[in-house]
Nucleic acid binder design. Structure first.
Lengths: 408, 408
DNA sequence: ATGTTTTGTTTGTTATTTAAACTAAATAAA
DNA sequence: TTTATTTAGTTTAAATAACAAACAAAACAT
């Protein structure tokens, strides 16, 4: 039984078949036409036709070299790949004290990157847009490109971003919210700009370059200065019904609990984010830990205290881990995912993410005889978030060129 | 900007256009062809063709009567409606102590119903399937029908139902879980049987007959003996990635909190469901409330105590309300819905669902300048759940007949 | 050489949608 | 009472796109 509604309607439009083929090639890297037909369910003849068009448009390349890996008999398969030179795409990740930009080619390979350090956040939307432009320009220059060579830009900001109305409701990087930051960005650049919450871009990075490759549905949880989430349902990022969902960090794990930087109480973030741990550490160790150290160092110190067996430091991580596990269990109860990816730079706190979390997760989620969701930890930094932003731009280009062929 | 991926691929297959037209007519009740074209975005010519086929197949009827409500000039519109006699559909709601069956026609009008009272749950799957058969047969007889007149049956059971694998992992109505209850039902009946979690059927009832009519995305929360949820995303019920999501009642609102009947601690259900309230009431009023009263009566007593101003009783409802509000806020933070419908029979506890809940909800969910989600309370009983089950069967028939025209 | 196998292409057919012209059926105006 | 106008719905012819089946290409096996 089931999902009879998905079983019909297979006769796709040309545009979505094109997009499906491009995404298939993008995921595979190199793939022969038969295998595309196999993977996507599109007829072999149709694959020939569409890939023919894509080759004509120089979006694809055939792989010329003779390779020995043929199955044996029969006409050898000719593999196809994305043409790296079809487009140059930019992605920008805006953090609280820096802007990281990556320039990638159409095949997703990074061409250059640039990181602008800056501590004057929050800025107005105009100031921030200019800083983004500066960073993108410098990153492009490193790749011997100018802004006019760039086909699209993806931008990720922390905070509450509604991509339906283009509003940023709140962000640590922007003053004067709510504001339509996309408008400003569009005025600044002459190519399309996609804005999104940074966690969604990390999710896109996982989907395209990371462990979400080829996986239809999964969750991504990011723990940095705040706690974010990305949800992939049926290969697409779910951004909430009205554009502002997935605020995992602000789901409540305790009635009238710890104070969060959002002003509410009991948010998960108020237990597991950087500032929450530091807040506790400062209380516990106020005579031992030097206030003047930068946040990163103080966190490291706390971590090493815990590793060395300090009970108080351990307890701080233990509580955070339990809360995180409980929050995750709620996600599991709601989404029933097969895969959860922890993604981010600060994943070194294995004390936090290992035992307590997983146990609390198991303990608080639905018990069935099916395998529990797989939980994987992925350590990567701002640069890869920027690549995710660029992937967002890539997606735009894929669907844009597809729509243009028959943009009814 | 946005959702460029949804903007392409409008060229639908015939089958989904048929289904879209049928759903449009079903939602509207009566509607002219021009308006169908308007609503669905399908070309006027195509609407003529497809409705022509549907009329030939006797799935639709034209409305003959001359009606005065024409706009004025021009050829008067001819409205179409579903042919009630096209199919008879059955829905069964299995509760902990009864089975309710509704027989509806293709237009969704109820033809008959039957309620079998029974207190011997849990039963084995064979026993339960037989009881369902008995109830359906009796309901059919009331409508002068036999089982062979029925096109499909929807069945809703409380508990954990995975409709991908047809497994019931746990249900208060079934012993020996996990079990493939669909298998048994299919052996019992000669027409297709759809099984689902009862909350999803309430959701379908809201979508077809209730306040979800014509709404693309909304949440339904049911509070009965347990707490359930239904999620409608893009007109479709989201059942979790692996088929077992939406277990709102078992999301955790307190680390190591109150004991739930599922065996875990801190589940929302353990604070707001019937048994949770009664548990507290029994502790607080053990010398005042008579144990032997049936649950419904005891709950009524508690409710009236609270209404009369009894502090202890009030506090019980107040805590439950706060917990529920917090749980709801988490749903809002994740799904960002525009509409939440409270659906069920026991919605008379306005003390519980009014002030505390809404305040706690506002208080714990994302603050933006957009309107907060609308929260509506819908009181209806088992019979309407059964109609939801029948709607599930209706949906099957709609997609089934559509797929048959061109079941590639 | 010849046959076999597998990949990829071509061709003709089919299903389906749609624009545009047309018919139908009403009211409004002359 | 015509005639024009308006709106609803239908027909027709053209366009699109997907696919099955036949075919060509390019390798290895015998």
């Amino acid at each position: 039984m089931i999902d009879f509604r998905a079983a019909i309607g297979q006769t796709q439009s040309k545009a979505s078949n094109r997009a499906a083929i491009l995404e298939c090639i993008s995921t595979a890297g190199e793939i022969a036409r038969v295998d595309i037909a196999q993977e996507t369910g599109i007829n072999r003849a149709t694959v020939t036709t569409l890939t023919g068009e894509l080759l004509d448009e120089k979006l694809l390349l055939t792989i010329e070299e003779e390779e020995k890996s043929n199955t044996g008999r029969g006409r050898p398969r000719v593999k196809l790949r994305l043409n790296p030179d079809a487009f140059a795409l930019a992605g920008a990740k805006i953090s609280e004290n820096s802007i990281t930009v990556a320039i990638v080619d159409f095949a997703g390979q990074q061409i250059s990157d640039y990181r602008l350090m800056d501590n004057t956040f929050p800025l107005t939307r105009d100031e921030l847009a200019l800083k983004v432009k500066e960073t993108v320009t410098l990153a492009a220059k490193k790749a011997n490109l100018t802004l006019s060579d760039i086909a699209a830009l993806g931008v990720g900001v922390p905070g509450y971003v509604d991509i339906q109305s283009d509003q940023v409701y709140w962000s640590p990087a922007l003053s004067n919210t709510p504001t339509n930051f996309v408008e400003t960005l569009q005025e600044t650049f002459s190519f399309p700009v996609m804005l999104d919450n940074d966690a969604n871009l990390a999710t896109l990075a996982e989907q395209r370059f990371g462990w979400g490759k080829g996986v239809k549905d999964f969750l991504v949880v990011t723990i940095e200065h705040g706690v974010g989430m990305g949800v992939v349902l049926d290969n697409r990022i779910f951004r909430g019904i009205r554009g502002l969902g997935g605020e995992f960090g602000h789901t409540k794990v305790q009635l009238n609990g710890a104070l969060c930087r959002c002003g509410q109480r009991g948010c998960l973030e108020a237990y597991v984010a950087d500032y929450a741990l530091l807040r506790e550490a400062d209380t516990a160790f106020k005579f031992q830990m030097v206030e003047e150290l930068p946040n990163g160092k103080r966190l490291d110190a706390l971590y090493h205290q815990a590793k060395a067996g300090n009970e108080t430091a351990l307890a701080i991580f233990e509580r955070a881990g339990k809360m995180l596990g409980m929050g995750l269990a709620n996600l599991v109860n709601i989404f029933d995912p097969a895969l959860i990816i922890f993604s981010g730079e600060r994943m070194q706190f294995d004390l936090l993410y290992e035992e307590n979390v997983l146990e609390e997760l198991r303990h608080n989620s639905l018990q069935t005889n099916r395998p529990p969701p797989e939980v994987r930890v992925h350590k990567w930094g701002d640069l890869l978030w920027a690549k995710g932003a660029a992937a967002w731009a890539t997606e735009y280009v894929i669907y844009d060129t597809a729509a243009q062929t028959n943009g009814r």
